[in-house]
Design a protein around this nucleic acid. Structure first.
Lengths: 205, 205
DNA sequence: GACAGAACTAGAACGTGTTCCTATGATGGA
DNA sequence: TCCATCATAGGAACACGTTCTAGTTCTGTC
């Protein structure tokens, strides 16, 4: 565990520490949801979480680590929700993937400031945030391969390397589309249409 | 022309001003090439360009505008080079697009720090940088549609809406791949392979 | 050539991310 | 219980993006 990484839940011994970590992430969400990336100020997060600034930095070595960790927690929760949903509606893989993407996108668009904060942090992250980013990437890939195979005979097979490649490409497009929306370069409707087009191109079987 | 935009070349009356703008962008490239995003410090750029800090901010209202404008200039130059090249090698659209992407990617990877600086600025940009970002997007789309049709009967036709949609999706993937490389999450070889896979998926005709 | 207004210089000042330091409190082992 | 160690609080200090001010130079017009 190098000092350049955020403290994961598993790293934290005491209950008090796990609670501190939770308070910090909750404060981050609240501030981000209110005022976006700029409103997530480290002093403000520390205050709201009732934690000293130094402690905040002990748990998350930078603002970017903090926000990407928040994003990772959100994705984890989302993954659980989708898993609980059981079969995903849609005849073809393209339909199911579109369904999941739209659902997730709509969820994000329901809280624009929060999404802006999390997305921009993700985009700005450098290699020191690799671990946290990898976690997000895994969630996304899992979600997409699950959608591709949901309700199929292959449902419980390991995703093939090709599945993973497809999921990565779709994830790429999704990320770019999200970025375009977050930065005000495209509307929610355009984002949805673009995603549908892209999924149609990639998953025509 | 709102104050939130960078001064474009056309906006600048005098030769002295055009030279200032050029000196600023040159200084930006040099610093970025040396030390990446963090090394492009506004005071340093102003010093190297022999311009006051206030003047720098008159030309480019933020560090992000500055770097994205630098990226736009680079793309413009690249577009000219490719146009001069004449026909692009490759039998199929996929081959030609792959060729162009790889060529461009290799060019960028030859100057990793510079690429890191420009890419991260692009990723971090918000809606106030829309104009500059749009310019980059246009260059990219033009480049890709040109590659799709190069040497074909359709060579000089206007790109169809479908062409543009395909170009956008490929652009999205390319951007994400570049980001993964810049942030050290994938190697140059992986980036190339991923791009080739993606183009193969999207452009199988 | 004189003037008005815009552009430029130099540098102070401010905000926020990040680092550092000291004192205080919590924890676990002898 | 006492001690050693580590985590935390509180706050000063620093770096760099950004803004602002005052004075100077340039440019175009009469």
């Amino acid at each position: 565990m190098s000092t350049t990484n955020s403290l994961a839940v598993e790293d934290l011994g005491s209950t008090a520490q796990r609670e501190r970590r939770k308070r910090i992430l909750d404060a981050t969400f609240e501030l981000a949801s209110d005022g976006g990336f700029d409103a997530v100020q480290m002093r403000a997060v520390a205050d709201k979480a009732e934690v000293a600034l130094g402690t905040l930095y002990r748990y998350f070595p930078s603002k970017i680590h903090l926000l990407v960790s928040a994003l990772a927690r959100e994705f984890d929760r989302n993954e659980v929700l989708i898993r609980q949903m059981g079969d995903i509606p849609g005849e073809t893989a393209a339909e199911r993937v579109s369904y999941i993407l739209k659902r997730t996108t709509r969820g994000l668009q329901g809280d624009p400031k929060l999404t802006e904060a999390l997305t921009r942090a993700f985009m700005f992250a450098d290699s020191s945030v690799a671990a946290e980013i990898h976690s997000v990437g895994m969630s996304l890939t899992t979600m997409l391969t699950h959608a591709m195979h949901s309700g199929q005979p292959s449902e419980h097979a390991e995703p093939t390397p090709e599945d993973v490649a497809v999921a990565r490409v779709i994830g790429d497009v999704w990320l770019s589309a999200l970025m375009a929306w977050v930065t005000g370069r495209s509307t929610a409707a355009e984002t949805g249409a673009h995603l549908e087009t892209a999924v149609g191109m990639i998953l025509r079987d």
